[in-house]
Design a protein around this nucleic acid. Sequence first.
DNA 1: CTGGAATCGTGCGTATACGTACGACCTTCT
DNA 2: AGAAGGTCGTACGTATACGCACGATTCCAG
Lengths: 146, 146
Amino acid sequence: MTTGSELPMALRAAYLTLHRRSDARFAPYGVTADQFVLLATLARAGTLTQRELAQRMPSDPSTVRAMLVLLEKHGLIQRDRHPTDSRARTVSLTSAGRRKFRQLFKAGEPIRAQMVDILHPDEVETLVGLLRRIAASLNTEYASVH
Amino acid sequence: MTTGSELPMALRAAYLTLHRRSDARFAPYGVTADQFVLLATLARAGTLTQRELAQRMPSDPSTVRAMLVLLEKHGLIQRDRHPTDSRARTVSLTSAGRRKFRQLFKAGEPIRAQMVDILHPDEVETLVGLLRRIAASLNTEYASVH
DNA sequence: CTGGAATCGTGCGTATACGTACGACCTTCT
DNA sequence: AGAAGGTCGTACGTATACGCACGATTCCAG
């Protein structure tokens, strides 16, 4: 209400709605919304360690691992030993993964378009900027009194 | 990138960051961020059916049910038979639930404040408005060609 | 007032989101 | 070199987020 709850609630509602729609949209391809995010991140970056991938999603490393195990089983990504750091594993798309990503990107187009169409171009830019400021701020522990 | 992916990604990043921070903040009270949302919704509305509660969160009814089973076990909410509709069950906070909610609301204050402090008041209003338009739009199936 | 459609809650299966603890390995400092 | 401390991935447990199918009930059309 008159409290500061409106922003968090609106953020939650918007995200969950987007997530539901995306899941439904990608389901016929046997892929989830979050898997799409992972594939998109890899498509952009090429090869990453699991850690780097998790940071860019952004998601927890242990969550990403579970997703990778699944996606590897489905043949969309591959994990190899890191050339110099034998703790790490590198992750990249297979050619099947690249192909699948292109399909998904097309399939998702209507949703992205719908989000953008109801806003003016300026508003999109504003919104993205505000969201990024929020995320950046919430990632810092906000040095309290000491 | 230059595609429409920025908005969905920024929305995802902002929400997940908020969710992590909130979870960490509420953990000492034995409550999750989503449970807080549920309690807050009940605190505002009083008594609701499970269905109505799910719509307002907004979450899936089966998700809400699982949360209610947990919260009931913890003594924070109670479920009773609906007076006129014997299919439905009504949900409301117990007095322990109301007490807990007041604590949580205070505990969450710094996070809400942090979100608002880095924005001008106008920006907060703008952001909430934009998020609501997005959510509303994505909830409608966007009548395609026919 | 009766038979079909819609609605409520439940149960089950899968995927995500974390936190935490662990072993293996790298790095750095002495 | 050797020890201390950090980092990488893994494994496990819990909570959410759904979809789907089911039985029970209510609602509505005829």
